[in-house]
């Protein structure tokens, strides 16, 4: 497997406050990589430097073999699509218009949508199954539909990499699973490299091929879910005790019987 995005000696933070110090991170091409870790462990900070929003305080980030800083805003967006945790669409925008925003990074000069762009937009809408809703206002959609519309927008960017910051946080269970299934489909059919932040370890283990576990600004563990999610890690970093069940063939661990270690009721 080849690395599509990598960072060496990476330090990052906001202002003078360093959150991540001297870390090595590699994102493999064509796989789903999950960023896990407790709140405040530096997952969002990491995502914000890997997608080029913030410059690292030190270290080098390489995208497709070239330094990330050399990419212009549009060129970067052609490589990495990003979906924020709580994206907000302006009033009065239809689904199709929203999805067409994804083509902005491919626009030259003052022309926006050529016939090829329109095709890509239409395909993206089809992929997320919003055909019947494409003329609806985004504001009138349900939470799950809105999330799919935004995913279609990032899909229209036609970029090899998609990054998503907690894409399931504001959704109910059905929509969480549907979103994750959709991402897996995008990974398998279109060979998208997907990087996402997840809080639910069972979902992370079930849907991700690679996990990067952050704790306190450092990478604590990297590898397949079976390798990363261990009783030791849960105890030391998440302060949780749990039984781990493995499925037969895939080595995708699932947690049951979880207890917080320092809680009164658990002891």
């Amino acid at each position: 497997m080849t690395a599509i995005l990598s960072a060496t000696h990476l330090s990052a933070g906001y202002g003078h406050h360093e959150i991540i110090t001297d870390q090595e991170i590699t994102v493999q091409s064509g796989v789903i990589t999950g960023l896990i870790g407790p709140n405040g462990s530096g997952k969002s900070t990491l995502l914000n430097v890997l997608n080029g929003f913030e410059s690292p305080m030190a270290g080098k980030i390489t995208l497709q073999g070239r330094p990330l800083q050399q990419f212009s805003a549009k060129k970067r967006a052609q490589q990495i699509a990003f979906l924020a945790q709580h994206p907000i669409a302006p009033d009065g925008i239809t689904v199709r218009e929203l999805v067409s925003f994804g083509r902005y990074c491919h626009s030259h000069g003052f022309r926006w949508l050529n016939p090829k762009d329109r095709n890509t937009v239409q395909e993206a809408i089809q992929t997320v199954h919003l055909n019947d809703f494409q003329d609806r206002l985004v504001a009138d959609l349900s939470g799950g539909q809105r999330q799919r519309a935004f995913i279609a927008m990032t899909l229209a960017q036609d970029s090899p990499i998609m990054m998503l910051d907690e894409p399931t946080t504001y959704l109910d269970l059905t929509n969480q699973l549907e979103t994750l299934e959709l991402l897996r489909e995008l990974n398998q059919q279109y060979h998208k490299t997907i990087v996402l932040v997840l809080h639910d370890l069972n979902q992370a283990a079930y849907y991700c091929d690679q996990l990067i576990c952050m704790f306190d600004g450092t990478v604590k563990a990297v590898g397949t879910p079976g390798k990363v999610i261990t009783a030791d890690l849960l105890r030391e970093e998440f302060h949780v005790s749990a039984d781990i069940v493995y499925d037969n063939d895939q080595h995708r661990p699932q947690l049951t019987n979880c207890h917080p270690l320092n809680s009164v009721t658990a002891s």
Partner: peptide, 17 residues
């Protein structure tokens, strides 16, 4: 077109290039 995309929230419009 730039201003139109900018009407999305800051992070999302940045992500769009």
């Amino acid at each position: 077109s730039g201003f139109t995309v900018m009407s999305l929230d800051q992070q999302t419009s940045r992500g769009l290039g």
